[in-house]
């Protein structure tokens, strides 16, 4: 019996010696919280993690009928409409340009990749207090002043919603280099013979080659990049929190889902039941979006 459990040459034992600590830890710190939280979402859990008052789907009902929650989803939608195409276009354009360089390729890649090492907190700080600080000594308003324009109150006005410029540019700066590296790797994998064949067929370098060779060959990379961009946008928290929150609290606009969830679950109410219901709803939305997007782009379909 024991020897069957241990396996031939005790291989099963060794398997668990190697993977056991990791698997147990993952179970404790990933699966248990998840299940516990699903449980909590059916209880009235103010300030407690061992509630007794079962409320059924009431938390889900109040979450879904809360306009603050639904408007946080709208905020995410607007945010991803800006940030996903912008990052995609910029990182692809940078990759195409860097890839065609004959010298200093590593240098330019390093420069664009460098912001990846910067934290969202520090970047938000630079954007909020130095570039877009809404007073005349800010860099953006100084530049506007050169053209005779009036200073803009970047983060503290909703009409017009200039805060989107700040939010989108900070993430663009931080993440473009990461996707540039992914695109560069994709470009390197395109066989050179395809370009030679295209040249023989009379395709003109530039747009035609990009349209018929490069872009289709980058399909797998593009799908992965778009998926990552949407999932990451959905989880945005750091830059929103650090750019918009002030000593007077968080303004009533530009609250993405995680910021909303943060204040529900850990703000004054500490309503962990409601917060857990929100987390479950968000996890389901992410799962659905991921699957739909993967289907739409035909993930797993073989390359032509």
């Amino acid at each position: 019996m024991l020897s069957r459990l241990l396996g031939p040459q005790r291989r099963y034992l060794w398997f668990w010696v190697f993977t056991g600590p990791f698997v147990i830890g993952l179970a404790v710190f990933a699966y248990i919280p998840l299940l516990w939280s699903i449980g909590l979402s059916f209880f009235d859990a103010h300030n407690t993690v061992t509630p007794t008052h079962f409320v059924g789907f009431a938390n889900y009902g109040s979450m879904l009928s809360d306009t603050a929650f639904t408007s946080s989803l709208a905020t995410f939608a607007v945010f991803s409409l800006f940030i996903v195409p912008a990052t995609y276009a910029l990182s692809l354009a940078l990759a195409l340009m860097v890839n065609r360089l004959r010298f200093a390729r590593a240098f330019f890649r390093s420069v664009f990749f460098l912001p990846t090492a910067c934290s969202y907190v520090v970047a938000s700080m630079i954007w909020k207090l130095s570039v877009f600080n809404g007073v005349r000594f800010g860099l953006a308003n100084t530049v506007l002043g050169w053209f005779g324009a009036d200073p803009a109150a970047w983060l503290s006005t909703t009409r017009p919603p200039w805060y989107w410029v700040v939010i989108v540019t900070v993430r663009l700066w931080l993440q473009a280099g990461f996707y540039l590296v992914l695109f560069l790797a994709g470009l390197q994998r395109i066989p050179g013979t395809l370009y030679e064949a295209a040249a023989v067929d009379g395709a003109r370098p530039g747009w035609q080659v990009f349209r018929h060779i490069t872009f289709p060959q980058l399909r797998a990379t593009s799908v992965a990049v778009l998926l990552l961009l949407v999932i990451n946008a959905f989880q945005a928290f750091d830059e929103f929190y650090n750019l918009l929150s002030t000593a007077r609290g968080y303004p009533p606009y530009a609250r993405p889902p995680l910021v909303y969830l943060y204040y529900v679950a850990l703000g004054q109410g500490q309503d962990l039941g409601l917060g857990s219901a929100g987390a479950v709803i968000l996890a389901l939305i992410i799962a659905v979006v991921t699957v739909v997007q993967a289907r739409w782009f035909g993930l797993g379909r073989k390359e032509a």
């Binding site: 990933a30 993690v49 857990s276 987390a279």
Partner: peptide, 25 residues
């Protein structure tokens, strides 16, 4: 075992901060 590990990648880590806080507290 491998799919059990990969499965946690599907759960976005930022969404689990509420449940993880529950456990840690």
């Amino acid at each position: 075992v491998f799919y059990g590990i990969l499965g946690t990648l599907m759960i976005p880590s930022a969404v689990t901060f509420v449940p993880s806080f529950v456990l840690v507290s």
